[in-house]
């Protein structure tokens, strides 16, 4: 060490505390990621089990063939864009729906806040899969929603609600809404109510106080809520598979197909890594944006 500082023992202690989680992180995330990276560079061979030639033990070649395939085939680019678009619109919808709910929870009397938050996450008490299945029943041609629409005379014939982007959006927003509400509620509850007093005192009507004070100060909460829905929605497999119908190919589903049906592990590994890049890039962008928006940031 070129110089020692009085904080050195503290740094060492911090490292010791962080050591275990870091080791866990390395073992459970970085190691498998390296493995996937290695597989993505291997040659596919359906005759083998697992179905690829492990180049690291001298069997088969090493190359970017799988990546080239992903880039060449239009289907992957389309799936990439579709996933991005569907994840972004559903995350936006979840934030739009979650914001008023979070605000209501944050403005509720203190005694009610925790029970209301518990209600918001209540759906988690039943299986995710079961809840998505339930939507099939609700959205079906002869399901209760179509029956209601017909009975009310709002529609002449049953609407094709199931199997399409409408159902996927609905499924994602429904399933991930608590993820949007929680960070927003946490952010809005931490908002100093005296700032709203000050805004009102200076002549701001409630709407103006919301737009000028509450909304800008909740930007970090909005970003967190968006990301917490956007990121899992990007790789979502169950919802597009059950509600999306055969035409829809979101990346998660494509990945599953390549892995289990086509048994092309190198290709599936390449898609995985590209999906990861797709998640990390918007994350970096948003954290940059947040740094600028946060009260502590320099404008």
């Amino acid at each position: 060490m070129p110089f020692s500082s009085p904080t050195e023992p503290r740094t060492r202690a911090a490292l010791a505390v962080a050591g275990l989680p870091l080791a866990f992180f390395a073992a459970m995330l970085l190691l498998p990621l390296c493995l996937i990276g290695a597989i993505s560079l291997a040659e596919s061979d359906p005759a083998l089990s697992p179905p690829f030639r492990p180049w690291w033990s001298g069997d088969g070649g090493i190359g970017l063939k799988s990546y080239a395939l992903v880039l060449e085939e239009g289907i992957y680019a389309r799936a990439w864009l579709d996933s991005l678009r569907i994840a972004a619109t559903s995350a936006s919808l979840a934030v739009l729906l979650g914001y008023p709910l979070a605000l209501a929870i944050a403005r509720a009397p203190e005694k009610l806040r925790l029970p209301l938050l518990a209600l918001a996450v209540l759906p988690f008490w039943t299986s995710f899969l079961v809840r998505v299945y339930a939507w099939i029943g609700l959205l079906r041609h002869d399901g209760p929603i179509n029956a209601l629409l017909l009975a009310l005379g709002l529609s002449e014939q049953p609407l094709p609600l199931l199997y399409g982007e409408f159902a996927i959006h609905l499924g994602i927003v429904y399933s991930y809404l608590p993820f949007a509400i929680l960070p927003l509620a946490a952010n809005l509850m931490a908002l100093d109510s005296r700032l709203l007093d000050a805004a009102a005192d200076l002549g701001a009507r409630p709407m103006s106080a919301f737009l000028r004070v509450t909304l800008p100060l909740s930007a970090p909460g909005i970003a967190a809520a968006f990301l917490l829905v956007f990121v899992p929605a990007l790789g979502e497999f169950v919802i597009p598979d059950l509600l999306g119908g055969p035409d829809n190919l979101m990346l998660g589903r494509l990945l599953w197909n390549e892995f289990f049906q086509a048994r092309d592990w190198p290709l599936a590994a390449a898609i995985t890594l590209m999906l990861l890049a797709m998640v990390v890039l918007p994350l970096l962008f948003l954290s940059r944006l947040l740094g600028r928006l946060a009260p502590g940031g320099r404008g």
């Binding site: 005296r194 700032l195 007093d197 000050a198 200076l202 004070v213 800008p216 100060l217 009260p295």
Partner: peptide, 12 residues
């Protein structure tokens, strides 16, 4: 208008 205790300045 009020001058608040701890000022309540808008941080943003």
């Amino acid at each position: 208008h009020m001058m608040f205790q701890n000022y309540a300045l808008f941080p943003h």
